[in-house]
């Protein structure tokens, strides 16, 4: 009886944790993509883009900690570096390179949730 109770608890925890993880990943990268899109759209307004980038860096620092506890670090390890590069390019006034890296990160925001989501090709 004791083992059955433990088994049910573990099963509920695994399914609950799995659902939470999927929702968390989706929500974080949706928000991330929205912020990056706003930066890319307003890249000509360097001061605004720089402010938004700095806010995004702080936001990502908080989210990253939870991510590293639940997902493979390889998927997200470059994000912080790319954000720092966008900030650097905006600081020196190189809008083109800033735009390139922003678009690259937007693609990452579309790719990572797909890699970590529940799809049949990942099961097989």
């Amino acid at each position: 009886m004791k083992r059955t109770v433990f088994a049910i608890i573990f099963l509920v925890m695994i399914i609950g944790f799995g659902i939470w993880e999927q929702v968390f990943i989706d929500d974080v990268f949706k928000e991330f993509k929205a912020s990056l899109t706003a930066i890319e759209t307003n890249i000509d307004d360097t001061s605004f883009a720089l402010d938004e980038t700095e806010k995004l860096i702080k936001w990502w620092e908080v989210k990253r900690e939870t991510f590293e506890a639940v997902a493979n670090h390889d998927e997200i390890k470059d994000i912080k570096i790319k954000l720092a590069e966008i900030k650097a390019y905006l600081t020196v006034g190189d809008k083109n390179m800033a735009r390139v890296y922003t678009l690259s990160l937007i693609a990452t925001c579309e790719n990572v949730p797909h890699l970590l989501a529940l799809h049949y090709e990942h099961i097989l």
Binding site: T4, F17, K77
Partner: peptide
């Protein structure tokens, strides 16, 4: 492998325990 979360090892183990119990029953 520190790049892999501990849950990636533990969740399969818990899953095997649940399956084992199910099959035993």
């Amino acid at each position: 492998e520190t790049a892999i979360p501990v849950s990636y090892g533990l969740i399969p183990i818990f899953t095997l325990f649940v399956l084992h119990l199910f099959i035993t029953k």
